[in-house]
């Protein structure tokens, strides 16, 4: 029995005439942290949106633990165990911090309700470093704390796979260290994660494996050291003239 969590086979997305994602193939195995990297507009976020069901694929198949999830609506995909954060943090403005996390615990993969859900949410808030801040309104939070709340929310349903869409973007250098440490601790717990990321330090220290995309196509795959020294990857990032 293989320990593959997620696999993409020939996944393609077209917007009108534009091919945003072209025949993507990759597998994510259990306890693995996979970096999905590439220049702006290379199709990373689109790939994440296809996996999470925010967009419908134009072709190919996505499966979770061997079961196809390609045609499922987003809420079904979440219930089967894929939870995501958003490139621009999305919190629920009318609710408290604690309720924001409870929101992730009630309807998702592992379902909790009532006191059970609240206790679980409190544990997770402590887990991401927000102990004692559950009663605050989300408008009162600092930027990194809003990111922490979102992370706690996606953890709340005990997902089989976490999708973090540029979770470290926009943090200042000291916050970045805190953020990297936090995600490292998730990796140490044995969680399976796909990171869409631009921050190279984070990619080097967090990812077990990387998939590099350029113009919608996978151009390299391997450990961070391998892919970051690959001439194709350097060309994709810097353009032909600089090589």
């Amino acid at each position: 029995m293989s320990n593959t969590v997620l696999s993409l086979r020939g996944v393609t997305k077209r917007f009108g005439g534009l091919v945003a994602v072209n025949a993507m193939d990759f597998d994510v195995t259990e306890h693995q942290v996979m970096g999905l990297i590439g220049p702006n507009g290379s199709g990373k976020s689109t790939t994440l949106n296809l996996i999470s069901g925010a967009l419908k694929v134009s072709g190919g198949e996505i499966s979770l633990r061997g079961t196809p999830i390609t045609a499922l609506p987003a809420e079904q995909i979440n219930r089967r165990g894929i939870a995501r954060t958003f490139q621009l943090v999305r919190l629920l403005p009318s609710m408290s911090v604690l309720e924001n996390v409870v929101a992730g615990a009630v309807f998702g993969h592992k379902r909790r309700w009532g006191q059970d859900a609240r206790r679980h949410a409190e544990t997770l808030l402590a887990r991401v470093g927000l102990e004692g801040k559950g009663h605050l309104r989300v408008g009162q939070l600092t930027y990194i704390d809003t990111k922490r709340v979102e992370l706690a929310r996606v953890l709340a349903s005990d997902p089989k796979l976490l999708l973090l869409d540029e979770w470290l973007a926009g943090l200042n250098p000291s916050e970045l260290q805190i953020g990297i440490t936090l995600i490292k601790s998730l990796r140490d717990e044995g969680r399976t994660i796909i990171l869409v990321e631009h921050v190279m330090d984070a990619i080097r220290s967090l990812c077990d494996t990387c998939v590099v995309m350029a113009s919608g196509t996978k151009i390299a795959q391997g450990t961070p050291q391998q892919v970051l020294s690959d001439p194709d990857v350097i060309r994709a990032y810097l353009g032909d003239d600089d090589v």
Binding site: G53, A74, N78, L92, A103
Partner: peptide
């Protein structure tokens, strides 16, 4: 109820709602 909570989440941000497993 769960339904009431789901509706509050939908009212705040429907995208978050569907990605939290809610059939909006």
């Amino acid at each position: 109820s769960r339904l009431g909570f789901a509706l509050r989440i939908i009212g705040d941000d429907e995208t978050v709602a569907v990605h939290s497993g809610i059939n909006s």
